[in-house]
Design a protein around this nucleic acid. Structure first.
Lengths: 110, 110
DNA sequence: ACGTTAATTAGCGAATCAGTTAATTTTAGA
DNA sequence: TCTAAAATTAACTGATTCGCTAATTAACGT
């Protein structure tokens, strides 16, 4: 299904992330509808869709001259699974962080 | 904290993803220990660490001549939150997918 | 067969990225 | 103070990315 870094790479672009979010919110959409709302040429969007497809994040269905795109739930699940694999780390760490901040309210950064 | 695409971008590189995973597994580590296990020069790794830092994924603590790195749990949480925001989509979709496959076992791809 | 619509691929330039070696900075120790 | 250790920044190169316009492919409707 293409690996995790590949998926993260696909989602590292604002245009592509919003396409994925829109497809999740609205369901299957033709390429034309996706281009219409983006301030970008059709070829540029077509390449973004290709990147998302190659990362396994979206699925393309052909219907006549139209290409209908939708998000692959398995791909989203793969990302969710990764975060869950490490939930123990960030969950516990956040608890400790909160406890610490409750005692000494500093404001730590980079 | 730097936005989501920024974090996805930082995690889109295999070297950086494994650094993050190692830090979650082993806890805080000095730059030297991180370089030691990567087949890469120190400057190259230093830049990867900078990318992770700028994405808000890791925290740097100075101790003498050493730079100690650790994963920021809030950053991991931000990613987990994003997946959870859309859980309803992928969870429900996967259920439908399974139900569908149970009836017609095809094997659909890109 | 022809023109139209939907979308993709081809080709180009500017910008960014990931690696290298060399040089610099900062702290610790003799 | 002089040297060594830890790490970063500087400067350079090759590869990739992202946008554009132009050209191509594929399916419909007449």
């Amino acid at each position: 299904m293409a690996n995790l870094t590949h998926k993260f790479s696909a989602l590292s672009d604002a245009t592509r992330l919003s396409v994925v979010e829109r497809l999740m919110a609205e369901g299957e959409l033709p390429a034309g509808a996706i281009v219409a709302q983006a301030d970008m040429s059709a070829p540029a969007m077509s390449r973004h869709l290709k990147v998302l497809r190659e990362a396994g994040l979206i699925h393309q269905r052909v219907e006549g001259t139209k290409r209908l795109y939708s998000v692959r739930p398995e791909a989203m699940r793969a990302i969710a699974d990764w975060t869950m694999d490490h939930k123990q780390f960030w969950d516990a760490s956040l608890d400790r962080l909160e406890a610490h901040l409750a005692l000494s309210p500093e404001g730590d950064d980079t």
